[in-house]
């Protein structure tokens, strides 16, 4: 009777606890025998363990190959453009795919501006929705909101863009513009903010709310001054990660915000420059060295921008987290 065989002892789906009901009682055989079997695991078990270990290491390195390859390609092919001052000061006016030169400042500014406007709309709605879900909501409305946030987080960016197109252009007859694209990005950013803020608010101990209530502090003051204040760094991190996510979104720009090679700070009229659209601009001519270099340079700029936001977010999360 070899009761200690892996498969019988620990069925795959059993959530292991100290006294798993499926483990056979050891009483009907000598303790010595059991000990011997344990200290010398069944060979199959040891081999399985070894295979798993090797598989994990191999998976890791196999998975890292394309990812490292991508980063390396972008950096090595894009860096030289970024080292020239013009890249950070100029735009692409009158520069064709086959031309070298020009800068990306117009697109950097455009991307930042659009992200800023998006955040201005999405952040208050997102945070207040999270506040409702954690601090006020119960019952049907809260469940409905939570469900809708889930749905919204699954809406593909192209569908969000089509929706804004259907409202903005088809229904109201307005022109495509940077602001229309920002509205589509708002739809994509809200669920990110709601979910991350919700997580952070749930982490705030209930005791702090009670302490404030017991001091005769009204609920809304408690939420604003105690709960949101305590969760502040986490919320900021969530906002920055959400921003990083929407800055690289291209589909809404493709549908709603045609690219321009010039400086443009008007979100409501005319074409609008952004980094993803600057990459897209040269797509058809990627065989030209000048166009490919510009695409890599722009991609690297975009990655650096996203990376910068990520790092700031993590630094805030690290140093701003409440020490116990």
């Amino acid at each position: 009777m070899s009761a200690l065989k892996t498969d019988q002892r620990v069925p795959e789906d059993e959530n292991m606890t100290g006294d798993s009901p499926t483990s056979p009682p050891p009483s009907n055989r000598s303790g010595n025998e059991a000990l011997r079997e344990m200290s010398n695991p069944h060979r199959g078990r040891a081999i399985k363990d070894l295979i798993a270990r090797i598989a994990m290491w191999v998976s890791f390195f196999v998975a890292m190959v394309p990812l490292a390859w991508i980063l390396w390609t972008v950096v090595s092919k894009g860096i030289h453009l970024l080292l020239s001052a013009t890249w950070w000061t100029g735009n692409q006016r009158n520069i064709n795919s086959s031309d070298v030169g020009g800068g990306a400042r117009h697109a950097i500014e455009g991307t930042l501006m659009m992200a800023g406007v998006t955040a201005l709309i999405a952040v208050p709605i997102g945070i207040l929705t999270a506040v409702y879900l954690v601090e006020y909501g119960r019952g049907g409305l809260a469940r409905a909101i939570s469900f809708m946030v889930d749905i919204l987080s699954g809406v593909p960016s192209i569908v969000a863009a089509l929706f804004i197109y259907a409202v903005w252009v088809t229904t109201f007859g307005l022109d495509r513009s940077g602001f229309a694209a920002a509205l589509a990005l708002v739809l994509l950013m809200i669920p990110v903010i709601v979910r991350s803020t919700e997580e952070m608010l749930k982490l705030v101990p209930n005791e702090l709310r009670e302490a404030a209530y017991a001091l005769g502090v009204p609920k809304w003051v408690t939420i604003v001054k105690i709960v949101l204040r305590t969760a502040f760094s986490g919320i900021v991190t969530g906002v920055l990660l959400g921003l990083a996510r929407i800055m690289g979104e291209t589909a809404p720009l493709l549908i709603l915000a045609p690219y321009t090679k010039n400086f443009q700070h008007d979100l409501f009229n005319g074409n609008f420059p952004t980094l993803p659209m600057m990459i897209n601009q040269d797509r058809g001519d990627f065989a030209l060295a000048s166009a490919a270099a510009r695409m890599w340079g722009t991609a690297l700029t975009l990655i650096l921008l996203v990376l910068l936001l990520n790092i700031i977010g993590r630094v805030i999360a690290h140093f701003g987290s409440v020490k116990k």
């Binding site: 690289g248 897209n280 890599w296």
Partner: peptide, 16 residues
Amino acid sequence: LAAVPSIVYGLWGLIT
């Protein structure tokens, strides 16, 4: 890498 915009993956796929 999870935060790298998808357009970068597209670019890499296309050219490299």
